[in-house]
């Protein structure tokens, strides 16, 4: 082995602290949650906790969570993609300032921001005040699935914009110029060049938006008026008010398995594309 290879193989060892960290704080906690999930309070093996996800109440929450997560992902893509294109068009792309505008809202506490949405959307809130001033009938969105949808789309939109932004800004202008020189119209340039190259960004964004929007129990709590439950609300109650750790763990594990299966496809796609484009 020559000196060069030796140095490179020694470099592995730099990852040792991280490897230990992963084992102690990622792998072992997962083993513990599986143990809770697969036992009852007497410590006997059972599948009941995980299977509980199929009970009518949990199924209803799961179905509602899926609808919210799916809708949120679609709306985020529909809002984020034109945003990135507009930023690119105006040449705001390479400037840090546009990223800054998107990340900055995260510095205002997210629970406060969701509470602000509650004030905007409530029946005698700011939105209805403006609508009635304009002479229209007030809308009743407070405590409806629509309100929750607005909340999650608002909260996770930056997580969709950022990866799409990274992917699109990485497309070299020369490539687009070349396509145009070869006779492609702006329509063809978009569908044959820009869109295919932005797919890794879309996938990263989907991963970042889908799972959190499915489980965010705070947003559904505040904007749903406590009556509309996501699967996250049910798990939270098992731990905080119900004190049923085994059941809560069982539902968490069921959720985790569901997420891993649905993400498996997405990630494999991403790996064949390029390295992480999350930020």
């Amino acid at each position: 082995m020559n000196e060069l290879e030796e140095r490179s193989s020694k470099r592995h060892w730099l990852a040792t602290p991280y490897a230990i960290w992963i084992i102690v704080f990622t792998v072992l906690p997962l083993i513990v949650i599986f143990r809770y999930a697969l036992t009852d309070s007497a410590g006997h093996f059972t599948l009941e906790n995980t299977a509980a996800v199929t009970s009518p109440i949990n199924m209803k929450a799961m179905w509602f969570s899926l609808k919210i997560a799916f809708g949120c992902t679609v709306f985020c893509i529909l809002l984020a993609y034109p945003m990135v294109l507009a930023m690119k068009h105006l040449g705001l792309g390479r400037r840090g300032i546009s990223l800054f505008i998107i990340i900055l809202p995260m510095w205002m506490n997210f629970i406060l921001r969701i509470l602000a949405w509650q004030m905007i959307l409530s029946n005698n809130g700011i939105l209805n005040l403006m609508i009635t001033k304009l002479g229209f009938k007030p809308v009743a969105v407070a405590n409806t699935p629509t309100a929750i949808m607005i909340g999650v789309v608002y909260d996770y939109l930056p997580y969709m914009i950022l990866p799409i932004y990274t992917a699109i800004m990485d497309i070299s202008d020369d490539l687009i110029e070349a396509a145009k020189d070869l006779g492609a119209g702006s329509f063809t340039v978009f569908f044959k060049v820009v869109f295919p190259l932005s797919i890794p960004g879309l996938l990263s964004g989907t991963v970042m938006v889908f799972v959190p929007s499915m489980t965010s129990f705070v947003i559904s709590d505040i904007l749903g008026g406590g009556k509309l439950q996501l699967i996250g609300n049910i798990i939270e109650q098992d731990f905080i008010s119900g004190n049923n750790w085994h059941m809560g763990s069982g539902l968490s594990v069921a959720l985790m398995i569901f997420v891993l299966i649905s993400m498996e496809f997405t990630i494999r796609e991403e790996k064949t594309g390029r390295e992480s484009v999350i930020w």
Binding site: T26, P29, I33, V207, M214, T215, W245, G248, S252, V259
Partner: peptide
């Protein structure tokens, strides 16, 4: 930790 729902990560760490 990025893929798992926050609530699952939080609970797993707490149980541990």
């Amino acid at each position: 930790p990025m893929l798992n729902a926050d609530i699952v990560t939080g609970i797993a760490l707490m149980l541990w």
